[in-house]
């Protein structure tokens, strides 16, 4: 902790203590601890944010947590970072959105098949899905690269030049979809197990087919869980660098995490630009959370 922070949190503790003295000293202590924790967790974020608004000399001469003074205040890092990352942002959106939606949708279908339909060998399949959740990224890098080398996607898509150029991104879409299905399946499965079996049976007796039941009953009731998986998968896929490093070869297909990496200067460390870039890269995941947050809360508490 820096000196500045210590005095800051100290004074707010003092204020709290005086206002809450009459109520309960234990409660005051609790709030003091909580405030301390908030300061502890937010200080890196705060430091990053202040740095992103400082000039090169500014962040060298001040402590990271000190707010930018007018003399060293600038928006330039944001402009520079955005200019470099523009392409990466677009590329990322191009593959993250379909990969997220596909893995959620396929995961939900698989979970439906594993909970509400009866057929032989379910346990075996479920075990495979479970194993898929625990498969580390690193362990599949080599076979993954070999697989996509064997499947010449760009060649296969030669009839449509636009798609052929984006073959790297399509490979990423497929890979992340496949990698995301197990966790989505497990999440949806736990949710579907709570759905009333009698309701499914009622639909069956009402004449609905297995897919009809999925489309008209299960899918509309899955929205809270879709919010959970969409947020989780979007964040996961958006933040991934490893698969992109292995699969994306052409510079024009660089995704956001790769372009963020590009901000790292070779001579001097331009922390202000890197920090601005980090915030730009994180923005879409924050937006997704804001959009689906309400549904997300419903999904994880199991309310429908």
């Amino acid at each position: 902790m820096t000196a500045a922070e210590r005095t800051e949190s100290g004074s707010s503790e003092g204020r709290l203590a005086t206002t809450l003295e009459t109520i309960d000293s234990q409660r005051a202590a609790l709030y003091a601890v909580l405030l301390g924790l908030i300061a502890f967790y937010l200080s890196p974020l705060w430091g990053g944010l202040t740095t992103a608004f400082k000039t090169q000399t500014g962040f060298v001469q001040t402590t990271p947590l000190a707010p930018p003074t007018p003399e060293w205040f600038t928006l330039e890092p944001w402009e520079l970072a955005f200019a470099t990352m523009q392409g990466g942002l677009v590329n990322s959106l191009l593959f993250v959105v379909p990969a997220t939606i596909l893995s959620a949708l396929l995961g939900s279908l698989a979970a439906y098949g594993l909970t509400k339909l009866s057929w032989r060998g379910q346990i075996g399949i479920l075990v495979l899905f479970l194993a898929g959740v625990f498969l580390p990224y690193q362990s599949v890098l080599v076979p993954l690269r070999q697989f996509w080398s064997a499947v010449d996607l760009a060649g296969l898509l030669a009839f449509a030049p636009f798609l052929a150029e984006r073959a790297d991104l399509i490979e990423l879409t497929v890979t992340h979809t496949a990698y995301g299905i197990p966790i989505c399946t497990i999440l949806f499965r736990s949710y579907y197990k709570t759905l009333d079996d009698e309701m499914i049976e009622a639909a069956k007796i009402d004449g609905a087919s297995a897919f009809g039941i999925y489309k008209r009953i299960i899918l509309p009731l899955s929205m809270p869980m879709f919010a959970v998986t969409l947020i989780y998968q979007f964040t996961q896929v958006w933040n991934d660098l490893l698969f992109a490093l292995v699969l994306v070869t052409s510079r024009s297909n660089y995704v956001v995490t790769q372009s963020l990496n590009e901000l790292q200067g070779s001579m001097a460390q331009e922390y202000n630009i890197q920090m601005a870039g980090a915030f730009i890269a994180a923005l879409p995941t924050i937006l997704i959370y804001v959009v689906f947050g309400r549904q997300f809360a419903k999904g994880i508490t199991g309310a429908s």
């Binding site: 009333d196 009698e198 309701m199 049976e201 009622a202 639909a203 007796i205 009402d206 004449g207 609905a208 087919s209 009809g212 008209r216 009953i217 509309p220 009731l221 429908s304």
Partner: peptide, 26 residues
């Protein structure tokens, strides 16, 4: 047609849609 102990209504549909579901499907 069957009436269940838990009623097993479709919670996301209105009463009208609940009642029409069987006709639509069968």
């Amino acid at each position: 047609a069957m009436v269940f102990q838990s009623y097993a209504l479709y919670p996301h549909m209105t009463v009208r849609e609940n009642m029409r579901f069987g006709l639509e499907e069968s």
